[in-house]
Design a protein around this nucleic acid. Structure first.
Lengths: 233, 233
DNA sequence: CGTGTGATTGACGCCTGTCAACGTCTGTGG
DNA sequence: CCACAGACGTTGACAGGCGTCAATCACACG
C-alpha cells in the first residue's frame, strides 16, 4: 500500500537529470514499489552523523544542507542537496555510519530507497553503477577544490566565492536576489569562520555596492567584481 | 610487445587489495595486455592539473602526492597514493581535465591503464564498478573530514593530527620513525599553513618530548598525547 | 508582551602569515 | 679537493586578519 504523497518514478520531474535516467521501464516500476515518499518540513533533521542508514534519499523537491560537526561542536556545511540529487549513498555503500548530518532547509519531498533496492540496481545495471560513480566523482572534485580554497584563501575571498557559488547553484530572482535563504550563521558555517566575520564582510560588500542586503535576502549586484575578489578561475 | 618492467596483473602483489580483486582470470589477462608498466623516479611529475588523461595509473610500488595549486600558486596536498591504489580515475570517468597534479615522492612502479580498458570493465563487470565506487566513497569521506578539520582546527591541532594520520597510513619503523619522508614545506602544504609555522610547532612538539627530529626523520614518541592535541575522535 | 533566535557592533588580543637574515647540507663542476 | 650554487631548515621581528566576548537591537511567535 502506498501513501498519499507517492511519486511515480517514471513521472518524476527530476528523472531525466537524476542517476536513475538510464533505468528501464521495468526497473523504474520496481523502484516505485520499493521506495517510500514523504514530505519533510523545514528544520527537520533527516539523519545525524553516526546514524546507521537503511537506504538513501532521492530529493524530489526542496533543499537540504549536509554538514559535519567538528570536535568543538561547531558545524561545517559540506554541501547542499537539491531536487534530483541523492544523499546518504556514501554511508550505505560503504556500510558505515553516516559521516555527516542532513537537515531540511526548505520543505522537501523525498523518496527513501532501501539499501537492498539500491544494491540490486548496482549489481545488475552497469550503466546505473557508472552513473552513481560519476556523481561521487563530481562531489569528490568539488570537495578537493573546497579543501584548497579553505586552506589558502582569506575569509573575505571565501565569502565572495561562496556568494558566486550559491548564485551558480541556486540562481537569482529577476531582481538579482539569491534564490536560497541562509542565516548569517549558516554562511559562516559554509566558509568556516565566525558569524561576526560574515556580518562584517557582508556589510563591507554592501558598502562597496557589490551586494545588497535586506534581512536574509541577498542581492548579487556585481558578479565580475565578486568573482575577482573570490579569486575564482 | 611488452617492456622489461612488465608486471602480470594476476601475479601482482597488490592485486588482492586493489579494485581489481574481483576480476576473472580472463579479465586479468586482458588487462595485463592492455596496460603499460613503467618505473617513475622520485621528483617526476606524472601529470599536471588541467592535463587530459588517457587512462588511469595503478600503483605497484612507491608513493605519490596528489595536490592542487591554489590561486596564489601555493600547493595544497590533497592526499597521498601508495601501492595498490589507483589515481586519475576521477578525471578519466568525468571526462574532464585533471583537477590535481601527481608527483612521485618515492620511486614508483606504475601501470597505465587506458581509458577504453577501464570503461570496458566498468560496462561489463558490475562488481568492478561497485569496487571503484567504494574507493570514490572512501576518498569522499576522507575529503569531507579534511574540510571540517582544516576549517575548524588550529594549525597546531592539524599538525598533530597529520602526524597521527601519517603514522596510520605509512606506519613506523621499529625505532618509531615515520616511514614516510617529507620536507617541512610538504608538511605545511598538507595542513595549509606556512613552512615556518610547521617548523616552530615541530620544535615545540620535540621540546615537549612528543616527537623526535633528526633531519627529515620524525619519530612519533607519544601517540596518545598527539591524538589528544589533534582532537581526533 | 515576554521569550527566543538571529543580526549588529565594538573592543581586545592572539594566532599565524610574511619578510628577512642566516645556517646547513648536498650535489656539481672546475 | 675545493668552491659554489641551490634547496631546505631555522629563528626572530612584526603586523594584521580574524576569533572571542559582551552588549544591544530587531523581529517573529505563542
Amino acid at each position: 500500500m502506498k501513501g498519499k504523497y507517492d511519486i511515480i518514478c517514471s513521472n518524476c520531474m527530476t528523472l531525466h537529470e537524476s542517476i536513475f535516467k538510464h533505468l528501464s521501464t521495468e526497473e523504474l516500476e520496481a523502484l516505485s514499489l520499493d521506495k517510500t515518499c514523504n514530505l519533510h518540513k523545514k528544520g527537520e533533521i533527516l539523519y545525524k552523523e553516526g546514524a546507521h542508514l537503511n537506504g538513501v534519499y532521492c530529493i524530489n523537491s526542496g533543499v537540504l544542507k549536509i554538514f559535519k560537526t567538528g570536535s568543538e561542536g561547531r558545524d561545517q556545511i559540506i554541501r547542499f542537496a537539491k531536487a534530483g540529487e541523492i544523499i546518504g549513498y556514501r554511508s550505505v555503500l560503504s556500510d558505515e555510519p553516516a559521516c555527516s548530518s542532513a537537515k531540511v532547509l526548505e520543505d522537501s519531498m523525498m523518496c527513501f530507497i532501501p539499501t537492498d533496492s539500491l544494491n540490486h540496481l548496482l549489481n545488475t545495471n552497469a550503466a546505473f553503477a557508472k552513473e552513481l560513480l560519476l556523481v561521487a566523482c563530481k562531489e569528490l572534485g568539488e570537495a578537493n577544490s573546497f579543501i584548497t580554497d579553505i586552506a589558502q584563501k582569506s575569509v573575505r575571498e571565501r565569502l565572495a566565492e561562496v556568494l558566486i557559488l550559491l548564485k551558480n547553484d541556486f540562481g537569482l530572482e529577476n531582481d538579482k536576489t539569491l534564490k536560497i535563504v541562509l542565516t548569517r550563521e549558516e554562511l559562516a558555517t559554509m566558509i568556516g569562520t565566525a558569524t561576526e566575520s560574515v556580518i562584517r564582510l557582508l556589510s563591507e560588500f554592501k558598502h562597496d555596492k557589490l551586494i545588497d542586503l535586506n534581512a536574509r535576502k541577498i542581492k548579487i549586484l556585481k558578479i565580475p567584481e565578486l568573482t575577482r575578489i573570490g579569486n575564482i578561475y
